[in-house]
Design a protein around this nucleic acid. Structure first.
Length: 864
RNA sequence: GGGCGUUUAGCUCAGUUGGGAGAGCGCUGCCCUUACAAGGCAGAGGUCGGCGGUUCGAGCCCGUCAACGCCCA
């Protein structure tokens, strides 16, 4: 073995070996209970970012452990066709050659996208392999492949037939850049400082006017009323009168409507039914005309008089200018308000009246809420349930049609002759109403999330009744960030229950977002995003995985610092060298794949075996609660601070003793082996490589999960470790070189210091031991651990003044402990109400502190 | 405006049944001890945001205030 751990050398070796062995397929454990996860499908256009790295590392850790525990563990990979995103990418490519999609036409453009996918669409899956993720590639799916398209059509038609999908004219959010409608949650609201324009709307008859305020003055061109609240005394007389709309001279009524906010602005609002959701509702109630004044390019329509053809923002200025010129402008105030932007391209969205398809979601939310309320699906951490409920309870209908080319077609056809709407899974040839054969399919496609929401069961073959569906659906757990609970998780719950009657997953494990070290959001646009693949090159995939898992406390954001990954890499080096020590120098061979715990271990062996059993049990407990960071933190500290720093050092001595060496080899072998197993889910490459050094020839990826038997270590271990630490401190405080041997006399009234201490005190503290009473005549000091005292001759070793100082400090420390415990015991309430064992423990503390201080005082006196 | 979260060592964060605060990085001193200097040993550093309450006992439970952040409207 090489002297240092080289991640890139190790990581190039194993992925193909695993895959060729079929280890990623659940069939590797044919008799195992099923355990399944579907990957949240990344956009096919995407490249792996830190969020993916975290999300997928967690899933891999779950899957790999379950696989080792003997489950038929299935992790389904795949990608999302990502309608807008992918169409944008390909359009941009074409633009380089000065071609628009319209030049190509719809059919050839779609071909172009498929070609792009074949060429560049597997980038992210290649990156997943680099990271070592053990997904079953034989089951890879794409949201736009054939089977999934069948599922989409089936769900659409079914929802339509039950009246849960309808087509209607409503105010939607329009992105003038992407040229499509988008849903409510694809709109990102940002607080901006805008201008509130106050406009005078004069009455047609008589003098006077009403002042209305708006942040979008250009929409006044589409105004068909002014509305006030019915209880507003200020406008009591105005209701029913007519207004002459400035600039266009259209006569519009003043109406009273409950929807108007009394306190806001002047209390009177202009009503633009075609370009505002609230105004649309007011318009419906009062039978107002809907005049579209902004078109799909965000330009003023012919209805906008002299402003026709202007861009909406240009028109905003022009309208204001004209109002001012003609005396209708009252004033302009600065105004903080939130402005909606397209989540895809950042363009300001335009609310617009449009004929679109919608899902009526309310009926679907009822069972989805119940499932979580009744615990059939649980969120981890639980607090995310509240957000889920809140969102579900306030859902508005979901606009699912998109004016794009790349996406699932809407399975709706219109009869060219009689206008009949035909919604069906198979392409219709004849109009059922008039028997015309002249039918035209709806040109729109579906929101990408409409197909993503089917992912947990469409990937398993639904609507076919496949073996996979029967065996692996519902899935065991969904792992994802809280940012897509609304987009994705909630919809999977709704449509999963609707389509299959079952919750799509038992658990939903929510993790946070990766942030920069100073807590900001990582994003490509702000240029502070780290590339995980670059980190892999610099530190290795295993160190990146381990550091992400350790840093990610459940449900909290992760401010990521490379220092963690560097620390994980150093841990890898430590583990590497521990194995190197065992393999090369100590001839550990033939460690069994499982079992093999020694029957008659020595004291330090039984101690580490006890700790191994405790730590494994605790690790499993934490892991089963999805507390991966705690579980691996525990393991990391156990490995480094206990196995490497203590056990390995103690084992060096016994390995030199031919009588004790066999049992030490056996113990060292099983402890390191089990460590490799426990660490494998997090750092698969390194552990597999080290496993191959242990000699058996099998693969770690499919080795059985460890279940070390309970063991009991020797009573005196903790005291001995304490004594060693204190002796080392004594050395450090007195600047005694580690090379200077110290002869100590150990006095041990309670029989804690057994014979086996001597070797360890020699090896780990550089002290040779004599048991018995302290020597008399020469100056000594003492170091005390529990009831054990070690006497150290001072002659030639230490400066007596320094020793006095050391003793005084020890006495002071002891006294403050003593004081605290005494005060507690002096409180009668404490004695009465605290549990007996707590009181007893406190009494023991007093007694031992007392004794200790007495000894130290005596020591001080002896020094004179 | 509503909801949620955060506030613990110089920095980034753990701390789930309330019983003397931990990790990583950083810092100080000593050590190239044949697994590892990507290391070892020892150490310094904290009124656990403020105030009040419950309790024999609060980082942890309750109330309140403050700062920061996120989501929704």
């Amino acid at each position: 073995m090489k002297a240092t751990y080289d991640p890139s050398a190790v990581e190039s070796r194993w992925y193909d070996v695993w895959e060729d062995a079929g280890a990623f397929r659940p069939e590797i454990n044919p008799d195992g209970e099923p355990y399944s996860i579907v990957i949240p499908p990344p956009n096919v256009t995407g490249v792996l970012h830190m969020g993916h790295a975290l999300d997928l590392s967690i899933q891999d850790v779950l899957i790999r452990r379950k696989r080792m525990q003997g489950y038929a563990a299935l992790w389904v990979p795949g990608t999302d066709h990502a309608g807008i995103a992918t169409q944008n990418v390909v359009e941009r490519e074409l633009a380089k050659e000065d071609i628009s999609r319209h030049d190509l036409g719809r059919e050839r453009f779609i071909e172009q996208v498929w070609e792009w996918k074949a060429k560049s669409g597997n980038r992210i899956t290649e990156q997943m392999r680099t990271m070592g993720f053990s997904t079953d590639w034989t089951r890879e799916r794409f949201t736009f492949d054939e089977g999934l398209s069948d599922a989409v059509r089936k769900v659409f038609v079914s929802l339509y037939n039950e009246g849960l999908i309808y087509r209607g004219n409503r105010i939607i959010n329009w992105c003038p850049r992407c040229h499509t409608a988008i849903s409510e949650i694809e709109v990102e609201h940002e607080d901006e400082v805008g201008e509130l324009t106050h406009i005078k709307y004069p009455f047609v008859e008589g003098d006077g006017y009403i002042t209305v305020a708006t942040t979008r003055p250009e929409t006044m061109l589409g105004d068909t009323a002014v509305a006030v609240h019915p209880d507003d005394d200020r406008y009591r007389d105005a209701v029913g009168r007519m207004i002459r709309l400035p600039l266009l001279d259209r006569e519009i009524p003043v109406v009273a409507d409950e929807g108007v906010e009394l306190e806001f602005g002047t209390g009177a609002v202009k009503v633009t039914p075609a370009h505002d959701p609230l105004d649309f509702e007011i318009g419906q109630r009062h039978g107002l005309e809907e005049i579209q004044v902004i078109d799909t390019e965000a330009r003023i329509t012919a209805q906008g008089g002299q402003f026709a053809g202007q861009d909406r923002f240009e028109a905003r200025e022009a309208v204001r200018h004209e109002l001012k010129k003609r005396g209708f402008l009252e004033r302009i105030d600065d105004h903080h308000h939130s402005v909606g932007h397209c989540s895809r391209c950042g363009t300001v969205v335009e609310p617009m009246l449009s004929l679109q398809w919608f899902v009526k979601v309310q009926p679907l939310t009822v069972p989805a809420i119940e499932s979580v309320k009744e615990g059939r699906t649980r969120f981890i951490p639980k607090r995310w349930e509240n957000n889920y409920f809140h969102w579900m309870e306030n859902l508005r209908d979901w606009c699912i049609s998109r004016q794009l080319w790349w996406g699932h077609s809407i399975p709706a056809w219109y009869c060219d002759d009689c206008g009949e709407v035909i919604v069906t899974e198979d392409v219709p040839t004849v109009c059922p109403a008039c028997e015309s054969t002249s039918l035209t399919q709806d040109p729109d496609v579906l929101d990408t999330w409409f197909s993503s929401q089917l992912w947990p069961f469409s990937t398993m073959g639904w609507p076919e009744e496949t073996d996979d569906l029967a065996r692996y659906y519902p899935t065991s757990v969904l792992v994802t960030g809280f940012d897509i609970i609304y987009f994705w998780v909630a919809r999977m719950m709704m449509v999963g229950l609707y389509s299959t009657g079952e919750e799509p997953f038992a658990d939903i494990s929510i993790h946070g977002l990766i942030r920069t070290p100073d807590g900001r959001k990582m994003s490509k646009s702000s240029g502070n995003a780290l590339d995980p693949l670059e980190l892999v090159e610099r530190y290795g995939a295993d160190p990146l995985r381990l550091s992400l898992i350790q840093a990610a406390a459940p449900g909290h954001d992760v401010p990521y610092d490379e220092a963690w990954t560097d620390a994980a890499r150093r841990f890898g080096n430590k583990l590497w060298n521990a194995l190197r020590f065992a393999v090369e120098h100590m001839k550990i061979v033939d460690v069994p794949v499982d079992g093999g715990y020694p029957d008659d271990p020595g004291p330090e062996d039984s101690w580490i075996l006890e700790r191994l059993a405790e730590v494994t049990a605790e690790f499993d407990r934490l892991f089963d609660e999805y507390r991966f960071s705690d579980a691996y933190g525990l393991l990391y500290n156990f490995a480094w601070a206990e196995v490497f720093d203590w056990y390995l050092e103690m084992a060096k001595g016994s390995l030199r003793d031919e009588d004790r060496a066999p049992v030490t080899r056996a113990t060292l072998g099983v402890v390191l082996r089990d460590l490799l197993k426990l660490f494998h889910p997090a750092i698969p490459y390194l552990t597999e490589e080290l496993w191959s050094e242990l000699g058996d020839g099998s693969l770690l990826i499919t080795a059985p999960w460890p279940t070390p038997p309970a063991a009991t270590g020797p009573e005196g271990m903790a005291t001995m470790q304490d004594l060693i630490v204190r002796l080392r401190r004594f050395r450090s405080e007195h600047q005694i070189s580690p090379k200077t041997p110290i002869e100590i006399t150990v006095n041990d009234p309670d029989g804690l210091a057994e014979e086996w201490w001597a070797d360890h005190l020699k090896a780990l503290a550089g002290c040779t031991v004599t048991y018995g009473e302290p020597p008399t005549g020469s100056a000594v000091s003492r170091v005390i651990a529990d009831t054990v005292q070690a006497f150290i001759p001072l002659e030639g070793l230490v400066d007596v003044d320094a020793e006095r100082k050391r003793l005084k400090k020890s006495i002071t420390d002891g006294e403050s402990d003593l004081e605290r415990s005494r005060a507690k015991l002096a409180n009668p309430n404490f004695r009465d109400r605290a549990p007996a064992e707590v009181v007893a423990a406190e009494e023991v503390k007093v007694a031992s502190a007392d004794e200790r201080i007495a000894k130290l005082r005596a020591q001080l006196e002896e020094l004179g």
